[in-house]
Amino acid sequence: MRCPACDHVNPPGADECERCQMPLSTLDLPQPQGPVETSLMTDTVMVLQPRPPVTIAADAPLGAAMQAMVQHKVGALLVTDPQGVLIGILTERDFLLRIAGTADYERHLVRDYMTPQPETVQSSDILAVALARMDAGGYRHLPVVHNGQPVGVISIRDVLRHLTRFCME
């Protein structure tokens, strides 16, 4: 890697220039190229305008959870403790994989079917972080958390809409 100050050629990945000791490690950070990368690296997840979270208590019955998902037209409920701290997530997928066909499931409790400690993003996280987590985990919804409290949910459709704004014209 070429030192930007003295033009000395250093081995790739060098932390500082061998000749002038200028720190080089920041040059290894990815540099945004073009509008999409700039947005991915400088916009926070809030640019997606996360929809307000629909929350439910862990000891609520699944019947109430279903009604909340239908009424609010959401595919995921955030499960919170009495202090409002996020402790789990309950999605349409859980109804398909584990709940449909179970006898009297309406009276079963959310806590027995939710995914505990779901992957989240902070409201200050950049888009690239959210995207890396969604893509790696295959998640369709990511709760947005501020000080442990859920403040929103971003969905894969929000991401797709944002990304294609730059390249569909």
Binding site: P30, E37, V129, A132, D135, R140, I156, R157, L160, T164
Partner: peptide, 25 residues
């Protein structure tokens, strides 16, 4: 699926997406 489309788009920007540390904080 929307997931496949997002993955396809993300593959065009591997450096900025896949070089993010698991927890940037």
């Amino acid at each position: 699926s929307a997931r496949q489309v997002v993955h396809y788009i993300v593959e065009h920007f591997p450096a900025v997406v896949f070089n993010q540390p698991p927890d940037p904080r």
